[in-house]
Amino acid sequence: MKIAVLSGKGGTGKTLLSVNLAAVSPESLYIDCDVEEPNGHLFFKPQDIKTEKVNVKIPQVDQELCNGCRVCVDFCRFNALVYVIDKLIVFNEICHSCGGCRLLCRKKAISEIDKEIGVVQSGKSENVRVLTGILKPGEPSGVPIIKKLLQDEGQENEDVFIDCPPGSACVVMESIKDADYCILVAEPTIFGVHNLDMVYELVRIFHIPYGVVLNKCLEEEENPAEDYCLKNNIPILGKIPFDIELGRLNSNGEIVARKQAKYRELFQNLLNKVKKEVQHETASNT
């Protein structure tokens, strides 16, 4: 069972939810796909860390073979190649590693070399296997790191939780595309509704079953995100209260479900609800 947790903006509670769901599951794999600012590991403090480099291919030019035809220069939509006097120059930091220049070169003047863009770290925290993707600052795309992370599909007995980057762009699409179910996390504000609307649209484009967790809920206060769900018939999986104690533990890098029975119960109930939804969706799709 692969569950992706996403939201239209940062700070809504994706990591709070995915970390704590992974913690209450008997055996789980937590994958931090928020490769620009991964922070799930701050909660899990995983042991036995293994680090693997993630490389992409960038072009290398053999000036002797290049005849200056410029097919590659004209092809590159990111303008990473330039032909100056009698030399083809590559701007490595602009290259998006599509490989098109090498394919198009009739003189075979372009080969490819590895460029490291980040790492994947794996470790263990009690019942949870923790995978973290870390993108180097300044790199154009975290997608290759997310691809590498999601090659680990989890063991048969493991529940997989994918902690997505915020928003609804390429890195999020890459993170959710093979998920069985998406949990959308929303805040009870107008901003929350706007951002929920973005990811709601995204999961429908991908035809992935979804449900919403309403975070930071205040008793007897209006909740625009809840109203939005009711209006659009979006299943509400549960609510996380606006709770100072929970907030404080979480801010200190503690996994609330491992710290207090009442929070363990809260996230256990949420996990049960999610599992039921996933089973229901799988059953109705076959």
Binding site: V73, C76, R77, F78, N79, A80, V82, Y83, V84, F91, I94
Partner: peptide, 18 residues
């Protein structure tokens, strides 16, 4: 023609200029 580039506008403009 570089003005509408998605990225690398300066590089493409430089190529056109030279």
């Amino acid at each position: 023609s570089a003005a509408s580039s998605q990225g690398g506008a300066g590089i493409k403009a430089a190529q056109n200029i030279l």
